[in-house]
Design a binder for these strands. Structure first.
Length: 434
RNA sequence: GGAGAGUUGCCGGAGUGGUUAACGGGAUAGUUUGCUAAACUAUUUACGGGUAGCCGUAACGUGGGUUCGGUUCCCACACUCUCCGCCA
């Protein structure tokens, strides 16, 4: 959530930023900005009057008390008879202030974060900038199977069985692929621990208040699974429980930066998705991800962002996968983000890039919703923290591309770095009846 | 699922229809001291006004109600804990 005061002081900057997202094109969003400024002004005037009114009212109440204590009851009665009729005014001022405040908050919650100055205008992924390429894409002469063709022959990934149990978009992994899946999670977490992140294990079901705080409501509500009976949402990312560990907290500056990692499954409804993009493991209703987050001071957050990008880059290099780094354009970024970098890896067999990590600096936008603040040691003033989140990494996307790109005529070769975690070097086709 | 107890500031924790929410702890600032410690004083959340010293208002789970005045009384809701039952 942006601060109303910030919008007031940086109106042009805010509008410019929202244009980069093509946000103002959505049904009269410009009028929301105007409304916020009007409401803020209104709120100030109302509060000023109310405070003055309450001041005199409180004074009278105290006078009445004094009169009663010294036994001058008649005078007291005269006073409260006189001021009894002001009560309506009191209630009126109280309710009007709270309704204006609520209205202001409601409007503020609907405005996304302002993009960083680097961010280019654009309404879709077409306008994302490629920052960096790594690894050669060599189209081998061996005819490789896509991971879903592979899974039909090998029985090691069974989408049909997943569908039988839970519907399409759910998958069963067996044998060495199940082990590889688990090994990746362990490797990613271990890598993050080496990078100074503390491991958390967290709940996968959360309250509405938690997803409002991290910003999935109102932006991504349709994407979330909701358990009506218990009023709980299934998490769509580990960011939700991790960031909510720090909801309504005042930290000391010396505690920052906070670096956390956690493995969680992620649940997404993906309503309306169809076609080749959703085949096999490409888009699932339940997938696995190891997440990293950082909570920092405002000065430090862009440094932390670079550090996180570098960290994920090194993981991908260690897996020997061809990848590229993108900076998302305004229209493709998430609601809470000021700047987002995506890592995509290349699948030879699918002939397409697949997103495996998305790293965002949410600046103070998310922390403001979370009421996550810190206090400088040499000054009394509390300030809003900056928060960052990133995937490190999405498990199934890596799995899919590993199965495809590492195919030889006989087997799938496990990358060196994963072998200590899998306990085997290859998955032989012969043993699984290709 | 059944029964009961609770929710107070940065943290712990008392409490009452009435000045300023006791007391303790932490943190920060200032004073004193050769340093540290100790001691003393002040501050501690949100919003608004003022260049500033400062001033005002709100805040005892949330929302209503009674009252000149509610942290306290009444109503509704949310959440937390304990015990019983069930259970990995």
């Amino acid at each position: 959530m942006l601060q109303a005061l910030f919008i007031e002081e940086n109106k042009e900057k805010v509008i410019e930023g929202l244009k980069k997202r093509y946000f103002l094109e959505i049904e009269g969003m410009l009028s929301i900005i105007k409304k916020i400024l009007y409401l803020l002004d209104d709120k100030r005037r109302i509060q000023l009057k109310r405070d003055a009114f309450f001041f005199s009212f409180n004074k009278i109440s105290r006078q009445i008390n004094k009169l009663i204590q010294i036994g001058k009851n008649e005078k007291a009665i005269a006073l409260y008879d006189k001021y009894n009729n002001l009560k309506k005014d009191l209630i009126y001022r109280k309710t009007i202030l709270s309704s204006v405040s609520k209205e202001l908050l409601k409007n503020l919650l609907s405005i996304p974060n302002i993009p960083h100055e680097y961010i280019k205008k654009g309404y879709s992924s077409k306008y994302n900038e490629i920052i960096y390429n790594h690894g050669k894409i060599n189209l081998s002469t061996i005819k490789k199977l896509s991971h879903w063709e592979f899974s039909k022959k090998m029985e090691l990934i069974n989408c049909e069985l997943g569908a039988k149990i839970s519907g399409s978009g759910f998958t069963i992994y067996k044998g060495k692929v199940a082990r590889l899946h688990r090994a990746m999670i362990e490797y990613f977490i271990e890598y993050n621990l080496q990078g100074g992140y503390i491991e958390y294990a967290v709940p996968f079901l959360v309250r509405p208040v938690a997803i409002i705080a991290t910003g999935q409501i109102p932006d991504k509500e349709k994407q979330m699974y909701y358990l009506e009976k218990d009023n709980l949402y299934l998490i769509s990312t580990g960011e939700i429980p991790l960031m909510n560990c720090y909801r309504e907290i005042i930290l000391k500056e010396s505690q920052l930066p906070i670096k956390i990692t956690a493995y969680t499954p992620c649940f997404r409804r993906e309503a309306g998705s169809y076609g080749a993009n959703v085949r096999g493991l490409n888009r699932l209703h339940q997938f696995d991800k190891v997440e990293i987050i950082q909570i920092t001071t405002p000065d430090f957050s862009y440094y932390a962002l670079q550090e996180m990008v570098q960290h994920v880059k090194n993981i991908l290099i260690s897996l020997n996968l061809p990848f590229r780094l993108l900076r998302l354009c305004g229209g493709d970024m998430g609601f809470t983000s000021a700047i987002t970098y995506d890592f995509e890896i290349y699948s030879y067999t699918q002939n397409q890039w697949l997103e495996v990590s998305s790293i965002s600096n949410c600046t103070n936008f998310q922390s403001n919703r979370l009421k996550l603040r810190y206090k400088k040691t040499n000054r009394g003033k509390t300030q809003i923290c900056h928060s960052l989140n990133g995937s490190s990494i999405a498990v199934q996307r890596i799995l899919a591309v590993l199965l495809e790109n590492s195919q030889t005529s006989k087997s799938i070769e496990i990358p060196e770095t994963l072998i200590p975690y899998t306990g085997f070097k290859e998955i032989l086709f012969s043993s699984y009846q290709i």
